[in-house]
Design a binder for these strands. Structure first.
Length: 206
DNA sequence: CGGAAGATCCACT
DNA sequence: GTGGATCTTCCGA
């Protein structure tokens, strides 16, 4: 496979905790008006579904917002948080699973200038400033609710082969920002490319 | 029907 | 390190 070949839907149809590390190093490709913005995925988090208190699918809760989350793996689940930031997930597993992988950070590969501009930055951005965080990542790629439910193997937003990371290059830790989730807050479901400057924050060693 | 909290980010102290 | 922005969702009354 070449770096810009999209990953097939089957890639996502397995447990989120398997898909999350497999997404590290992949290229997230956003097409807007014939132009391309590309981020290499450097940080992900798995959300397991109904049994995971940190997940929107906790307790098999289904709402208008979480509809896409319960679809068959391979589509995007986008939602708004704090009234101003969008979050991008790749839905995993099968239909009604409610599992997904949050894309938390990316390293600019192409279209960096446009991404920085979409983030409201001027001048040369510091590492992590463009897409070092889930809200920043969505802003850099101009991802909004219009992409909720979109397929990830074709169309304006795709995940491509990229440069898959070896297990040794991936650091594992606890998820960020889910302290309310009890024991689930400490589950080792955060995956990051080791020593990468674009990761949203230093890994917490468990 | 009201209130609280959220898978965040930024500016300010 | 702390707090404000800003709005959808959820739960309890």
């Amino acid at each position: 496979m070449a770096p810009f070949d999209p990953l097939p839907p089957e890639f996502y149809r397995r447990p989120a905790e398997a898909v999350a590390p497999a997404l590290i190093g992949r290229y997230l490709v956003r097409r807007i008006g014939g132009r391309r913005r590309v981020l290499k995925i450097v940080e992900t988090e798995a959300y397991l579904g109904a049994s995971d208190r940190a997940s929107h699918a906790w307790g098999d809760r289904r709402t208008a917002r979480t509809q896409a989350l319960f679809r068959d793996g391979g589509v995007a689940y986008v939602y708004l948080i704090y009234g101003l930031h969008h979050m991008l997930n790749a839905v995993t597993g099968g239909a009604d699973d409610g599992s997904a992988v949050l894309l938390r950070a990316g390293e600019p590969i192409a279209g960096g200038r446009r991404m920085a501009r979409a983030r409201g930055l001027v001048g040369a951005p510091a590492p992590g400033a463009v897409a070092g965080g889930p809200g920043k990542l969505c802003a850099a790629l101009s991802i909004g609710l219009d992409l909720n439910g979109a397929t990830l193997h074709r169309g304006p937003l795709t995940v491509c082969e990229g440069e898959p990371a070896s297990p040794a290059a991936i650091e594992i830790g606890a998820r960020v920002g889910v302290d309310y989730a009890g024991a689930a807050a400490r589950w080792p479901l955060r995956f990051a490319l080791r020593d990468n400057a674009h990761v949203s924050r230093p890994a917490v060693v468990t």
